[in-house]
């Protein structure tokens, strides 16, 4: 579990905290965010890598953002059109995928320097692991804070939800404790 969580950019690289805190109050939102994010990251990585010979070093950051914006807009309109409930729940955090540091991080650190296929694979995997991290967080928060899993009652009806978990401080605390647990240095390691 520790190794799996380290693969997630949020826990391994400490990137992408904004969505990790904001949308992980429910599993459905986390899954939606994760999929939207994976889509954007995969395609932005693909195009950054494809165009890396035409992107001048000096203006690369704005150009990365323009590439990412294209796919964020596509995602934004698709979700608004086909999943209005999810669109309501995620709100501003879909447009904010643009400035997610994982997108820029992968574009700058990987896609700009590697071949198209490698960049595609890198984007897809990072997206999948990010989704996994979101789901772990959201699972704990939704189960404890609402007693449900994907909106279905998972705990006995008498369960009194621990609201703190779905409030922002609970998100911060939970991420902190998960980080502490996976970064703990074993004396013999």
């Amino acid at each position: 579990m520790r190794k799996l969580l380290r693969l997630c950019p949020t826990f391994g690289l400490l990137l992408g905290f904004c969505p990790a805190l904001a949308v992980t109050t429910a599993l459905t939102n986390a899954l939606g965010m994760g999929l939207a994010f994976t889509f954007v990251l995969t395609f932005s990585n693909f195009f950054v890598s494809l165009l890396r010979r035409f992107i001048p070093e000096e203006t690369r950051i704005p150009l990365f953002i323009i590439i990412a914006v294209t796919f964020v807009t596509i995602t934004d309109l698709l979700i608004a059109g086909f999943a209005p409930d999810l669109y309501q729940a995620l709100g501003i955090f879909i447009p904010l995928i643009v400035v997610n540091c994982i997108i820029l991080g992968r574009a700058e650190a990987f896609a700009y320097k590697n071949t198209v296929l490698a960049a595609l694979k890198d984007g897809l995997l990072n997206g999948v692991w990010f989704t996994f991290g979101l789901l772990v967080l959201a699972g704990i928060r939704e189960l404890g804070g609402a007693g449900t899993i994907f909106g279905f009652q998972a705990l006995p009806a008498g369960y009194v939800p621990t609201l703190l978990l779905v409030l922002p401080p609970g998100g911060f605390l939970l991420i902190g404790f998960i980080l502490a647990a996976i970064n703990e240095q074993k004396p013999d390691a």
């Binding site: 009194v160 621990t162 609201l163 703190l164």
Partner: peptide, 8 residues
Amino acid sequence: AFLLASYA
């Protein structure tokens, strides 16, 4: 504070 936030 934990209890107040969780079980107001």
